[in-house]
Design a protein around this nucleic acid. Structure first.
Ligand SMILES: [Mn+2]
Ligand SMILES: [Mn+2]
Ligand SMILES: [Zn+2]
Ligand SMILES: [Zn+2]
Lengths: 130, 130
DNA sequence: TATCAAATGCAACATTGTTGCGTTTGATAT
DNA sequence: ATATCAAACGCAACAATGTTGCATTTGATA
């Protein structure tokens, strides 16, 4: 098996996730690192973090892909069965850790991953819309 | 307001949707039309069909985007609050019209659209895996 | 400090989706 | 049947996003 290493780029990306209250896109992360590394490296770091269940991927109907830190008690493998909200106005994507969808799926399906994203207006933008 | 027209390309795309049991990607649809029209036209037709709530868009965690016909009683505006299943092996995406997630979201969010996609192994692939 | 694979940089490429603009075409009225 | 006119189209050009191969660098360990 592979032995992971703590590189400066990976550490920087993790710090960025730690500080951010919203989910981040590849481009946003790359910009926030201020050219610390190549954009390909960011892709590869994100791949590894998703594989290690340190961050999770969020895909929205508009095609945007974002990433957010996993706020689970353990670093073990798990399914991210919580909702995400994508605001059509401010374009921010946030984890709604407490909104967990319940559903009944036939037993002959094996579910490995979930993408549950709601889009519309977030509380901020809904408020300023009045 | 715009007055829609029934072009040969749009008719062909609708027939393709009618015949297909699974959701289709832009590339798949374009191939099935056998170069009846430009690929940009397919994009524009899909945009219109989604806008008119004739088909709905499905986005998977692996980044693939697919479209499927809406099987609702009416052609009016509605939210597609049913699950979709994306098989990691055969790569087929199907609508699970009967699997509707229930969830409780704070009242200060306004939800306009939903993307609920489960990925894993479909019944066929799960079966042939034994 | 030597070792060695993990991780990176760079270039090149593929895929997907968008935009502008001149041309074609489908529906409607004449 | 024909004229009309905007909806829809074709084409080219572009942008964004993500992937791959390979030589080089770097982090952890001995
Ligand atoms: Mn989340
Ligand atoms: Mn569906
Ligand atoms: Zn907002
Ligand atoms: Zn399958």
């Amino acid at each position: 098996m592979k032995i992971a290493r703590n590189t400066t780029a990976k550490t920087a990306v993790l710090e960025i996730f730690e500080k951010s209250k919203t989910a981040l896109s590849h481009a946003e992360i790359h910009k926030l690192t201020e050219d610390l590394c190549d954009r390909v490296t960011i892709y590869r770091i994100l791949d590894r973090l998703v594989n290690d269940d340190v961050v999770h991927k969020i895909v929205n109907l508009d095609g945007t892909v974002k990433y957010a830190k996993c706020h689970h008690n353990a670093q073990r493998v798990h399914i991210h069965n919580h909702a995400h909200f994508s605001c059509e106005k401010c374009l921010e994507v946030t984890c709604l850790e407490n909104v967990k969808p319940s559903y009944i799926i036939p037993h002959n399906y094996k579910v490995n991953d979930i993408n549950f994203t709601l889009s519309g207006l977030c509380p901020n933008c809904l408020n300023s819309n009045i």
